[in-house]
């Protein structure tokens, strides 16, 4: 429950970041044509914001059923095999998310050790961005686990509903 609330808040944050990106880029166009001096930072900030939006928002996306999946087979089998198939599918997803987390963690550590900056016209310590990716991956894993638990707990009720 708490996880769901937190994930939804992240969903709003992510959406707002996308909106902010639009504002910043539009300002950049305006600055180029009307102020005669494009901002050096706008492009970079926008790029960082979209990365952050993707990773802040992905757990909300999963929670709200946004990460599309093929349902034709699983919707046709009986509850128990259905749950097993779903669990297996989520297991694959979990393995990928875990590998992503591991990889992001390693880069976050390296970025910190070597004081890397992010690519772009605005030097920003990369560890912040890799850190956001680590955070997003953790949230994705937690949400995946929550979904699996949900499938086993609520599966029967949903079947009855149908």
């Amino acid at each position: 429950m708490l996880l769901k609330k937190f994930t939804t808040i992240l969903g709003y944050v992510s959406g707002f970041m996308i909106f902010l990106t639009g504002v910043i880029m539009l300002y950049d166009v305006f600055a180029r044509y009307f102020l005669g001096s494009p901002s050096v930072w706008a492009q970079s900030i926008s790029q960082y914001l979209i990365l952050a939006a993707a990773f802040f928002g992905t757990s909300y996306c999963l929670q709200s059923g946004g990460h599309v999946h093929v349902e034709i087979l699983v919707d046709r089998v009986r509850p128990l095999p259905r749950r097993i198939l779903f669990t297996l599918g989520y297991l694959f997803a979990l393995i990928f998310a875990a590998a992503l987390l591991k990889s992001c963690w390693e880069y976050a550590v390296m970025a910190y050790q070597f004081a890397w900056d992010a690519q772009g016209n605005l030097p920003l310590p990369s560890v912040i961005l890799y850190g956001i990716m680590v955070f997003g991956s953790v949230m994705l894993i937690l949400t995946l686990l929550a979904r699996v638990v949900e499938i086993w707990r609520k599966g029967e009720e949903k079947e009855a509903e149908k």
């Binding site: 180029r32 005669g36 494009p38 050096v40 492009q43 772009g120 016209n121």
Partner: peptide
């Protein structure tokens, strides 16, 4: 432009760098 330092160079020359 194509990178931070080329952008800074172009700015120093009075141009408007753009990605």
């Amino acid at each position: 432009d194509h990178g931070m330092w080329i952008g800074k160079t172009l700015e120093a020359w009075g141009a408007s760098p753009m990605t």
